Computed example of a mutant assay.
Amino acid sequence: MSRLGNLGARLYRGEVGYDFIGHRKLWYGVSILITITAIVGLVVRGLNMGIEFEGGAVFTTPKTTASVEQTVHSAEKISGHTAIVQELGDGGMRVQIAGVDTKTSSAVKEQLAEELKVNPEKIDAQLVGPSWGEQIANKAWQGLGIFMVLVVIYLAIAFEWRMALAALIALIHDLTITVGVYSLVGFEVTPGTVIGLLTILGYSLYDTVVVFDGLREGSKNVTKQTKFTYSEIANRSINSTLVRSINTTVVALLPVAGLLFIGGGLLGGGMLNDIALSLFVGLAAGAYSSIFIATPLVADFKEREPQMKALAKRVRAKRAKAEEREGHDSDGPQDGDGPGGEDDGGTRPRITVQDGNGNGAGAGAGVSGQRRQEPPRNRGGRGRPSGKRR
């Protein structure tokens, strides 16, 4: 078995583990800091909305000798609006200009072909109206709202409302971080971005539901035992699925990273960047929130219940008694002290075991039950003579 597999087996059996629940305040602080950073970036910088949401034109040119900087300068000089230029794999350019309508698109196309020294007939022009982008945004918000409502209802029925609430908070956490990264990086928000955001919702819930399922199984009849508190059972559930969560997350991130860094970065995949970035950030944030946010929140919610408070009190009392007993046993009875000694007030009789010579040996508190006394051995003529009497 590999080291990772051996570690996973030991985590599953509870032989080793990390106290995620005990350090939950640290993880809460880290998550709050990241979320605040994302919100500040979103407020200050905003989102770079694509023409699908703002309206404009996209011109795709054939292979040209002009650089990206020259193309940006020419497009902005011709249109009077900000232009976004991306070099394509075949040497052509994708020029995106917001604010260009049907009346001015033909003139912009002709002048752009002249500046880039290409045939205007080979430039592909696509016009997008702002109303279409508004419809996409509204549909996306509707889909997001319906999805979250259904998720909360399902988790409340399959598990309980506390787990549903914790999963909802983790989802909002993941979405906020992903949108904040888009704002800080400056990637363009396109319909591909919306598709990616909706896709990560399922991924971010996957690990959360796996941990919740283990927690539900481990917490059955939890109040009928005094060995673990609810938080400790929740921590064991996280540790038992930790390696599984890491493996599934890494396997899912590898192809997405290929899309983002190779397909989008090296090959200039265009929309691949929009989808891959949201998937990459969302998958990483979902794995983080399922371990460090969702399950600790459930433990916090449950520990506020009176029966869980009573359970924690009983567990602490039992452990205190066990520690006291171990400390007493490690000290051991001293001469003249403790049970069976001279100073115990005669509350427990001193047990004496006779040996063959008639000498007595006092037994301490560890002696229990009856002892069989062996008869004296024959010592070669001593005592009563052997043989027949005359």
Score class of each variant (00 low, 15 high):
H328A: 15
D335Q: 07
A361D: 04
E342A: 12
D329G: 02
R348S: 14
K321A: 15
D355K: 00
Q334C: 01
A361G: 10
A361L: 10
G345S: 01
G341R: 01
G327S: 06
G327I: 00
D331L: 12
G332I: 09
D337Q: 10
G362N: 10
N357I: 05
Q354K: 14
G362F: 08
A322H: 12
D335A: 09
D344K: 00
N359P: 02
G362M: 10
Q354V: 11
T352K: 15
D355F: 03
D343M: 10
E324R: 13
S330E: 13
E324T: 11
G338N: 01
G360K: 15
E342F: 07
E326Q: 10
E323Y: 12
H328P: 00
R350Y: 02
G341I: 03
T352G: 05
G346L: 02
A363G: 02
P339K: 07
E323C: 01
E324Y: 03
D344L: 00
G346K: 01
D337P: 00
D337A: 08
A361V: 13
N357T: 11
G356Q: 13
D329H: 07
V353S: 02
E324N: 06
G360P: 06
T352H: 09
G332V: 09
D337V: 05
I351A: 05
G327N: 06
G345H: 03
G327H: 04
P333N: 06
N357L: 13
E326K: 12
I351M: 08
D329Y: 07
T347I: 10
D331W: 08
P333G: 03
G338E: 04
G336N: 09
P339F: 14
Q354A: 13
T347N: 09
S330I: 10
G340N: 09
T347K: 04
E324F: 04
D329F: 09
A361F: 14
K321I: 13
D355S: 03
R325E: 14
P339N: 07
D331P: 01
G346P: 00
N359W: 10
I351F: 04
G346S: 01
R350L: 08
E326V: 05
Q334H: 09
P349M: 08
G360W: 06
D343C: 05
G332Q: 12
N359G: 09
D329A: 12
R325N: 12
E324G: 08
I351L: 11
G341S: 15
R348Q: 12
E323H: 09
Q334T: 05
G332T: 08
A361H: 15
D344V: 02
N359Q: 15
N357R: 13
Q354Y: 02
H328E: 15
D335F: 05
G356M: 08
R325V: 14
D343P: 01
D337T: 07
P339S: 11
Q334F: 08
